[in-house]
Simulated scan of single mutants.
Amino acid sequence: MSSTNLTTTDSNGMANQPLPPDQISPKSVVVRIMKLKDVFRRNWKLLLILVAIGGISGFIYDITHKKQPVYTATMTFNLGGGGSSNSFGDLGSLASAFGLGQGASDANIFAGDNFMIYAQSRPVVEKTLMKTVKINGRDTLLINYYIRHSGIRDEEWEKSDTLRAFYFPRAKLPEEYTKLERVAMSQIYTRIKSEMTVSQPERKSSFMELRCGMQDEMLAANFIENHLNTIEQDYRQKQTKKTREMYELLTSRADSIARVLTGTENKLAQYMDQNQQVVVAQGQINQTKLTRNSTFLSTIYYQAVQSADNMRLSLIREAPLFTIIEPVELPLYKEIITPIGMQAGIALGLILALIIIFLRETYRSVMNEG
């Protein structure tokens, strides 16, 4: 059997060395380009039609799913203060006398990233939404303004006539919600949680940033401002809970001592008025006893009042301090979401056309060889 000669000759009869299998000759490149030109010539109408169909479909999608602009409100603040001590100093002796111990445990229940989770928690968000705010000169419940202007009616509630017509008649506590109000609040909170973020711009700083992006400028600005107020009020209430309870107890006991002291002083005054000329020893003993009781109660009362005042100062000292670094400034940053349906449709149409052309040409090649 004779071996196959792989050597080629040119037009002058000179032998050419065969090309290695991993190289392509310029002639083969030209041949392939000519073939692609023929393929395009046979299928350009199909390519144009599928790309046009994809582009038109994407354009229709963009028209029917037009995105509203998003207004972003940002507020930077610093959370400081809130330090508590293990001892109340001058309160020690009185607290021991009342059986309250020498001090109170640390009331700081928030630390680190816990604050970020707390600021976005549902109870705090609900308190903000149930506030009455003045927008465009009118008092309105913030949650009802959110329902009307956030876009939730046209997106999440588009297929529910009941929810589209829903609103809260008044501010309510969570335990007062009806079944429909619980459903509505749950969906509203889910949407707000995706619109709002609490972050720390710089890990080395103590600054915090509260940000939200909503479809209405006044809604975004008012929500951020009122939400920070809610966080501050709720945070202060929880941060100073134990100290506030002790302050209320000391105030109550001071009032009780004051009532007893007033009664003793009245009895002493009446006894002295009725017995001005009495020289009997028994009468003098009674007067001395009432005087001693009045003096003792006066001393205890003044100590209780001073301790209550010191406790009130401690309450102020332990309260956290929210300092606004950058308030919300109008007009807000407006982000217009560019629709990409048409571009995506053209790309999908092009890919589909290439697949169909490949299958057609493959089938044509097989049939020709057959």
Rank of each mutant, 00 (worst) to 15 (best):
G80Y: 04
G80L: 03
G82I: 12
G82Y: 05
G82K: 09
G83F: 03
S84M: 13
S84E: 00
S84G: 13
S84R: 03
S85N: 13
S85P: 02
N86E: 03
N86W: 01
S87H: 07
F88T: 15
F88R: 14
G89F: 04
D90M: 04
L91W: 06
L91Y: 10
L91G: 14
G92L: 10
G92D: 10
S93I: 06
S93A: 11
L94N: 01
L94F: 09
A95T: 06
A95E: 10
S96V: 06
A97H: 10
G99K: 01
G99N: 01
L100P: 00
Q102C: 01
Q102K: 08
A104N: 10
A104R: 12
S105M: 04
S105Q: 03
D106Y: 05
A107C: 01
A107K: 02
I109S: 05
F110D: 08
F110L: 15
A111Q: 14
A111D: 13
G112D: 07
G112R: 05
G112L: 01
N114H: 07
F115Y: 05
I117Q: 13
I117H: 08
Y118A: 11
A119R: 04
A119Q: 04
A119C: 07
S121Q: 12
R122P: 11
R122G: 02
P123H: 01
V124W: 09
V125Q: 11
V125Y: 05
V125R: 06
V125C: 05
E126Q: 10
E126Y: 07
E126L: 12
E126G: 02
K127I: 06
K127H: 02
T128F: 02
T128P: 04
L129V: 00
L129P: 05
L129D: 04
M130C: 06
M130T: 02
K131L: 13
T132A: 03
T132W: 02
V133G: 15
V133H: 09
I135S: 05
N136D: 13
G137V: 08
G137Y: 14
G137S: 13
R138V: 13
R138T: 14
R138S: 12
D139K: 14
D139G: 06
L141W: 00
L141G: 00
L142S: 08
L142W: 07
I143K: 00
N144S: 11
N144M: 12
Y145P: 03
Y146L: 14
Y146E: 12
Y146H: 10
I147V: 10
I147N: 03
I147C: 07
I147H: 03
I147Q: 00
I147T: 07
R148Y: 06
R148M: 08
R148I: 04
H149W: 08
H149K: 11
H149D: 09
S150N: 12
S150Y: 10
G151L: 09
I152L: 13
R153M: 07
D154N: 08
D154C: 00
E155I: 12
E155V: 11
E156Y: 11
W157L: 02
E158I: 13
E158C: 08
E158N: 05
E158T: 07
K159Q: 09
S160P: 11
T162E: 11
L163M: 13
L163T: 07
R164P: 01
R164M: 07
A165I: 00
A165G: 01
F166Q: 07
F166L: 12
F168H: 05
F168V: 00
P169C: 00
P169H: 04
P169I: 06
A171R: 02
L173S: 02
L173H: 00
